[in-house]
């Protein structure tokens, strides 16, 4: 019995983008033996869960404290503990080079969830510098568009995107945060493009070609019939887009 060749396919492959949830190891010390010890302890609580788990190593805290760490040794350590490191982020340039040298990808800090940034202290009267700066920074990354977004145009915001006019069919608006459209939304709207599942889309008239939050999308044809032509908010709940009238 001979096996016939598989039927020829026109496209052998295609590129797609996805966002997935990966455990992040947030280091706040550069003491490798101590890290190893504490990791071992965590693993012993759920050995099966951590076995061969992908792992992203976050060096932000170390960088902030000007603490250096030997990337090669640190990666060797987590490998010994049966993790599969898939990259680092928040490191210094030198650390990024060291990671690339051992074929380890370097990820950007964008899309990190709030747990990574220092938790806001309970509100006290004495506001420290870091806290005072924060609103200004996020305001910089938000984008306000007051003219119609026309077919063929693309708008990208690193924070929230606010459009006070219509978004035409064939236009594409993307934001790493939330999207607000105070007009008719006819084009494509993609919120949380770097994987922020908490982001939402708000619009005052939903006629979008496509809506997406953190990579989970719905086409116009899949929208619940009642949802179109109404002011709605769209959120993500457990991998499903929820469209609610507002």
């Amino acid at each position: 019995m001979s096996t016939s060749a598989p039927p020829l396919q026109k496209n052998a492959l295609e590129f797609k983008s996805t966002s997935l949830t990966v455990p992040v190891l947030l280091l706040s010390s550069n003491d490798l033996p101590q890290i190893g010890e504490q990791l071992q302890e965590k693993i012993s609580q759920a050995p099966e869960f951590f076995k061969n788990s992908p792992l992203l190593i976050d060096l932000q805290k170390l960088t902030n404290q000007n603490l250096d760490i030997d990337i090669q040794e640190m990666i060797a350590l987590v490998r010994r503990l049966a993790f599969m490191p898939i990259g680092i982020r928040g490191g210094t340039e030198k650390q990024n080079h060291a990671a690339l040298a051992i074929n380890l990808p370097v990820h950007s800090m964008h899309g990190s969830n709030t747990a990574i940034s220092p938790k806001p202290e309970p509100k006290t009267l004495a506001v420290n510098d870091a806290e005072a700066k924060k609103p200004a920074d996020s305001a910089l990354e938000n984008k306000l568009i007051t003219h119609p977004v026309r077919s063929g145009q693309r708008v990208y915001a690193k924070g929230d995107l606010i459009v006070t006019a219509t978004v035409s069919a064939g236009a594409e608006i993307m934001a790493e945060g939330n999207i607000h459209v105070y007009g008719t939304l006819r084009g494509r709207a993609l919120a949380g493009v770097l994987g922020d599942v908490e982001s939402r889309i708000f619009c005052s008239d939903l006629q979008a070609e496509l809506i997406s939050i953190a990579g989970i999308y719905q086409l116009r044809d899949d929208l619940i019939p009642g949802a179109a032509h109404k002011p709605v908010q769209i959120s993500l709940d457990n991998q499903t887009l929820i469209i609610k009238e507002i």
């Binding site: 026309r150 077919s151 035409s168 236009a171």
Partner: peptide, 12 residues
């Protein structure tokens, strides 16, 4: 739709 595209080009 073509006009909309053209308006976008006019604006940018």
């Amino acid at each position: 739709r073509d006009s909309d595209r053209m308006l976008g080009i006019l604006a940018s």
